[in-house]
Write a protein that binds this DNA or RNA. Structure first.
Length: 416
RNA sequence: CGGGGUGUGGUGUAAUGGUAGCAUAAACGCUUUGGGAGCGUUUGGCCCGAGUUCAAAUCUCGGCACCCCGACCA
């Protein structure tokens, strides 16, 4: 993509109505735009990142047998009455002209449970794994911290249906592993810890995936021995000791909840009378699990972890582009050479953002480059051309390297 | 929802009752090209409404919006 054609421009200064790092950098870099408190538009660069995250999640969910669907966001009152959640405070409600009540979906158990029930009669039909990636609406009392707490957001919600607890337990562990893979691919492997949370009425524990950053809004207690995280309710219940390894050396860390998984057990299947005929001929209740990841929050969390004073430092797999190609100097031979490199990078299927802006000063191009945070920077300038080379620098590192022009594409293909 | 704060060109700011100014961005021209470069010209603004006053960006009231802390977040 040519930077000269990007309709969104970077901002030089911090905006005054955002304090959080993720919002500042995303807005200044032209990744997102705020429509109102807690509601953001994703702009071309930001949408590319979002799609990268979405695809990672999709691949890992498909890998464990997930079947992707797309459920409505506009939901009927009747289903919420059935589970007694019509009065839930965080739910946005609206009325049609004819006076019918609707809600915007803040979670989808009330849709997915009766849907799957329509097709499942026998133990032979189980288990079922279904997920979607879709907008959710939650009437939070206070949106805050940029993408970390919003009222409209894109969420991957995954639901599993099982014939018994053993099967649910086994699958729950598989999802846990898939989640670790997702966070690893997003660059958060070292910072993200499985954390025990209260399971509510469903089971003893639920699990959160907490990413440690100084700017997190949650607080967890990380066991220094087994690296299990505990939230506040749990440590009080467990008497300030890790329930897994009985260690008492717990360190308080600030963290962002980037995912959570629950065993719903029969809470929703009961409400919708979702039963099946088991192999012993008996009618039994279906057991459910649910597994969520907020995509925007994950994106925000990544920035809270990966940035410096100049801007974002995207992890490789979710960066909007792999390479930021920058032309310095407007002499015709420089332009011709850079254009050719741009075309060759595209032909080699390397995602490239090409700063072909003629009127911008060198300093501004560098500043924008650092702000946008694409992993690899390639510069073509009179200086590099003297040596028939291009300069390569990684965003996360200081050292620069000259690579001969005729080896450039090959080098990029094999090293990044 | 309780508390605190803030609304001035696209962005960032100044003017505290008396001519709305500066920087930056944008447009045009010329120069310039390894860390937001220079000169000249130009365009564009007081969140909304009511009130006080000779006079309101400034004071009062109401509304709207945004940020921060807390509560809330199966």
């Amino acid at each position: 993509m040519r930077q000269s054609q990007l309709f969104v421009k970077t901002l030089k200064e911090t905006v005054k109505d955002e304090k959080s790092i993720n919002a500042q950098l995303l807005i200044r870099g032209g990744f997102i735009d705020k429509l109102m408190a807690g509601v953001y538009s994703y702009l071309p660069l930001g949408f590319r990142v979002l799609k990268k995250i979405e695809n990672i999640i999709r691949e890992e969910m498909d890998m464990i047998g997930g079947q992707e669907v797309f459920l409505p966001a506009l939901l009927p009152k009747a289903n919420w009455l059935q589970t007694n959640r019509w009065q839930y405070e965080e739910m946005f409600k609206l009325k049609s002209r004819g006076g019918k009540d609707y809600s915007l979906g803040w979670t989808h158990e009330e849709v997915i449970t009766p849907l799957v029930k329509k097709f499942v009669n026998s133990y032979k039909d189980l288990p079922v794994y279904v997920y979607q990636i879709q907008n959710k609406f939650r009437d939070e009392l206070r949106s805050k911290s940029g993408l970390l707490r919003v009222i409209e957001f894109i969420m991957k919600d995954f639901y599993s249906f099982h014939k018994n607890e053993k099967d649910l337990d086994k699958y729950y562990e598989e999802v846990k592993e898939a989640y670790f893979k997702i966070f690893k691919r997003c660059g958060l492997e070292k910072q993200t810890f499985l954390t025990l949370a209260s399971g509510g009425t469903f089971s003893k524990y639920s699990h959160e995936f907490q990413t440690i950053t100084p700017y997190g809004e949650d607080q967890i207690y990380l066991c220094q021995k087994c690296k299990l995280g505990l939230n506040k309710e749990i440590i009080e219940k467990e008497n300030y000791q890790c329930p897994k390894c009985k260690n008492k050396n717990l360190k308080i860390e600030k963290a962002i909840e980037v995912g959570n998984i629950f065993k719903l057990m029969d809470k929703f299947s009961k409400a919708f009378k979702f039963t099946f005929k088991d192999s012993d001929g008996k009618e039994k209740i279906v057991l459910m699990g649910c597994y969520g990841i907020g995509l925007g929050r994950l994106m925000g969390a990544i920035i809270e972890v990966y940035h410096d004073s100049k801007g974002i430092i995207w992890p490789k797999e979710i960066a909007p582009f792999k390479v930021h190609l920058i032309q310095i100097g407007n002499e015709r031979n420089i332009e011709e050479i850079t254009e050719k490199i741009y075309e060759n990078l595209k032909k080699a299927k390397i995602e490239v953002l090409y700063d072909d802006r003629k009127e911008k000063s060198v300093g501004e191009k560098f500043t924008d480059c650092d702000l946008i945070g694409i992993p690899t920077r390639i510069i073509i300038s009179p200086k590099t051309l003297e040596k028939k080379s291009a300069e390569i620098k990684k965003r996360a590192q200081k050292k620069i390297k000259l690579i001969k022009l005729n080896q450039l594409i090959n080098y990029v293909q094999h090293n990044f």
